[in-house]
Computed example of a mutant assay.
Amino acid sequence: MTGTRRGDAVRAAAVLLAAVAQIAGSPLGTALAGRSVGEVSDATRSLVTPAGYAFTIWGPVFALALAWAVYQALPGQRDRAVHRATGWPLAAAFAGNAGWELLFPLAGDRLPVLPAVLLLAIVGAAATAWARLQHAPPAGLPRLLPAAVTGLLLGWVTLAAVVQVASAGVALGAPARGTAAQLWAVGALVAVAGLGAALVLVARVAAGPFALAVVWGLVAVAGAGGPGVVTGAALGAAAVVTAALGARAARRRERGALLVG
């Protein structure tokens, strides 16, 4: 086995192992801590914490990640440029998810800065894969799977990072309600809208999955039953990201790649 082939095999194995680990992470974290991610999240709930149903998005993310991990590990797929470009960043993101699922139930309310920093690292890894994906040549299924995974993952963790920072603030003693909390929440949602729209407007590939995940989370924030000003800001942010996707699709010839991958 040449050095290049050996490197491809190691990378493919790392992606597959990390994809499996993030599926096992949540039940293992619950077993170790004696409480779930949801229980800790409820105890440190902020005005930007989305309604519980929003977290079902992890199901499609994990399923797509596992499907791609298996596909890219096939001997005939390991040397594809798109898998080489996105493999290590996504392996890092998946492994980060597994670590976060262990860490948050154990320390999310006692040492809240640690899971917040880890989640920001996950955002960075997913963003790296996203950036590299934008320059990958059209290749059908080999690009579709990592594009769908990366778009959904980056969109969701972008919002989740804001939620995590807010949760950490509450755990450290910041007010969970009141005028100051509402101002912070609105500012955070405006930032998500701006960042989400900016990424959509410069994207060549997988803007659809990314926007879908961001909008899904924002609508769930609106549906969480918070103050009217926060609900309005969340719906407004969702509308901004949706409008950006529509504007980008109107100007882009390769709409399939943009909207799907």
Score class of each variant (00 low, 15 high):
Val157Met: 03
Gly169Val: 12
Thr179Leu: 14
Gly187Val: 09
Gln182Thr: 14
Leu183Cys: 00
Leu145Ala: 13
Val186Trp: 07
Leu152Cys: 05
Gly178Asp: 06
Leu153Asn: 06
Gly178Trp: 11
Val165Asp: 00
Ala148Pro: 03
Val170Asn: 02
Ala181Asn: 07
Ala181Lys: 05
Thr150Ile: 14
Gly155Asp: 13
Val149Phe: 15
Ala188His: 05
Ala171Gly: 11
Trp184Ile: 03
Val170Phe: 09
Leu144Pro: 09
Val170Leu: 06
Ala160Gly: 02
Arg143Asp: 13
Gly173Phe: 03
Val170Tyr: 06
Val149Thr: 15
Val149Leu: 15
Ala161Tyr: 07
Ala181His: 07
Ala174Glu: 11
Leu183Asp: 13
Ala148Trp: 14
Ser167Asp: 05
Gly173Ile: 13
Gly173Pro: 01
Leu154Pro: 08
Ala181Glu: 00
Arg177Ala: 11
Val165Gly: 06
Val170Ala: 02
Thr158Leu: 15
Ala180Cys: 05
Gln164Ala: 14
Val165Ala: 13
Pro175Asn: 03
Leu154Val: 07
Trp156Arg: 01
Ala166Tyr: 02
Ala185Phe: 09
Val163Thr: 14
Val163His: 11
Pro175Thr: 10
Ala176Arg: 14
Leu154Asp: 10
Ala161Ile: 07
Gln164Cys: 10
Gly178Asn: 02
Gln164Ile: 05
Val165Leu: 15
Ala176Asp: 11
Gly178Ile: 13
Ala174Lys: 04
Leu159His: 08
Ala185His: 10
Arg177Pro: 00
Thr158Ala: 15
Gly187Ser: 04
Ala185Cys: 08
Leu159Thr: 06
Leu153Gln: 07
Arg143Phe: 07
Leu144Lys: 03
Pro146Val: 12
Gln182Ile: 09
Gly187Arg: 04
Pro175Ser: 05
